[in-house]
Design a protein around this nucleic acid. Structure first.
Length: 109
DNA sequence: GCAATGACGCTCT
DNA sequence: CAGAGCGCCATTG
């Protein structure tokens, strides 16, 4: 329906994540219309290019953990940003998904 | 155009 | 709980 690539759709979903909430790759993929393509979400975020203001730091894996590698401190940045939003990250870098997991507001548009 | 790379999720043992 | 294997696709050089 949209000439946009799969990545564009993923970004659109990520952008919809409200502040103080987090979503898992699988959830984002599902909401984006790519069920089972959790990997695509990861790939999409990896290719994320500058200029695209996307709260990618709100996207985490199903384990409630940050998958990113701290290659450029990305993982650290994400953790700090989440905490800065009010998301509580366990000492192990674990996040209480049951408490912060983004719930699709769903419901007409 | 080809080949290589890359932020996952789930199930089973 | 820990480890391993399988399936999926788009972007970049």
């Amino acid at each position: 329906v949209t000439p946009l690539g799969s990545h564009a759709r993923i970004f659109a979903v990520v952008k919809r994540i409200p502040r103080g909430a987090v979503a898992t790759y699988g959830d984002v993929a599902r909401i984006a219309g790519l069920p089972g393509q959790a990997r695509l979400v990861g790939y999409a975020l990896h290719t994320l290019k500058s200029g695209t203001r996307v709260p990618w730091h709100r996207v985490i894996n199903a384990q409630g953990r940050i998958s990113l590698g701290d290659r450029s401190g990305g993982a650290t940045t994400q953790r700090l940003r989440l905490i800065s939003e009010g998301v509580i990250v366990g000492g192990n870098g674990r996040i209480a998904l049951g408490q912060f997991r983004w719930k699709k507001a769903g419901r007409r548009s």
